[in-house]
Structure formats: structure tokens, C-alpha cells
Write a protein that binds this DNA or RNA. Structure first.
Lengths: 108, 108
DNA sequence: TCAATATATAACAATATGCTTATATACGCA
DNA sequence: TGCGTATATAAGCATATTGTTATATATTGA
């Protein structure tokens, strides 16, 4: 059950979502169970540290959780996030980014 | 009728909303017809230039429109904004900020 | 026309953000 | 244990953002 969100917390959340890479990551994660870092790196044609840093911000805010499987780290949307309902509300209005995943690399 | 929003435009919009002052302004403007600059200045206990600059960003993005009445400039939410529906969706989940207005200064 | 008020803009400084490169850490496997 | 792969972190740099101060513009009313 999500909490109703105060304006200050909403501003911080929206700021975090106000980045194309992070927003796309989250849009993907609400329709895709989880992704490993290497998938994001390929998808965004970005450097590995850049992706890791975005993921850390999302994780520090509680929006995603990480799960190690062997040497791969998988990230998924954190349904326990306090304002998960609100985030869903925002994300589901955005077009699916599933095609960005392309042929999924099988990391596992 | 609002347009469906692409991810890149959504990111830019959310970035703009990801500021406490601007987010609060907009939250007020969806329940309050319009506000003049001096009301915002008092409400946020911010400097007049700071408020003007926030309003300009919102106006440049098309989120608010301005209307002069004598020496006062009134700002209101722009219902014609391409993604007005989306913005409404986000804002209506936030607590009303009407009390922030306090006793409204009558500028007109 | 001039002064007062409201607002906008410009220039600058402080801070935040996001990337890069380099390096550290964690894991699997030989 | 040692190497290769995946990921995280740190440091530094370039750019963006936001506020401040100073000034410009617009409007009203004497």
C-alpha cells in the first residue's frame, strides 16, 4: 500500500525521474522483471560506470533493488518503495520501452 | 485533449517539476485560477528575481501562461499545454498547497 | 513628465550533476 | 591461488542549475 506523497518528497522523486536514462530504466523495469547492468549498458550505448551511477541513485532512493546472480547484478523495480504507486502512475502513461531491450542478452 | 508523451519529453517535463518551488507553484495553480508574482514571493519567502526565474522556466516550457492586469502579472496553469493531462495526473496526487497562499493579498 | 511600484532580465558566483578515466571489489573457474 | 569478467567506486572535469545583486522595463497616478 503506497503512502500519499508530500510535495517535498515528490519534488525529489521527480528530479530523480527527470533524466532520460533513469526514466527509461524505470519504464523498462515496470514491464520487465529485472535487468542486469550489461543489458542497460548495451541498451543505452553508455559507459558501464555511467550506468552504474544512475542505478546507484535509483537504489539509494529506494526505487530499485539489486540482486546478485553469480557475477551479474540484476536490478528490479522495488514494489516496497514507499511511493511505488505514484511512480507506477507516472510510468504507465509513458510508451513501452521494451523494444529498447532488443534481443535480450542472456546473462543467466 | 492531451497528447501521449514520449519518454524524452517526459524526462524534460519531470526535471522541470523536480523542484520544490516550481512543483508547489503548479500544484497551487491547478486549484487556484491565477496568482500574481508578489503572492508567490510572499508565499515562498523567496526573492522576487528567484520567483520570476522559476516562472519563466515554466512559461518557456508552456506550462503556465501570463496575463497582465495593470502593473501586476498573473500566472495561471495553461490548459492548452500539450501534456496538461499528464501534469494534472501527477499534481492531483499531491496534497493541496492552498494553505500556503495564506490570506491572499488582493493585488487587483 | 516624473516618481513609485511590480516585474523581468543580466551578470556573476556557488553548488549540483553527469560524464570520463582509473582503480577497486566480487565472483566463477581453471 | 590466479586470471578473466562484471560491477562499483573514486577523482576530476565540464556543464547545468539556482540563487544573488544590480539594473532595465512597464504601468499607474500625481
Amino acid at each position: 500500500m503506497g503512502q500519499s506523497i508530500e510535495i517535498e518528497q515528490a519534488a525529489g522523486l521527480l528530479k530523480l525521474l527527470g533524466d532520460k536514462t533513469r526514466l527509461t530504466m524505470l519504464r523498462i523495469l515496470i514491464e520487465q522483471d529485472c535487468c542486469c547492468v550489461c543489458e542497460f549498458v548495451e541498451m543505452f550505448e553508455a559507459s558501464q560506470p555511467a550506468i552504474s551511477q544512475h542505478l546507484r541513485k535509483l537504489r539509494d532512493a529506494g526505487l530499485v533493488k539489486e540482486n546478485r546472480r553469480g557475477q551479474w547484478m540484476f536490478y528490479s523495480f522495488n514494489q516496497q518503495y514507499e511511493y511505488a504507486d505514484y511512480v507506477h502512475l507516472l510510468l504507465k502513461e509513458l510508451p513501452s520501452q521494451a523494444e529498447k531491450l532488443g534481443k535480450r542478452i542472456s546473462c543467466d
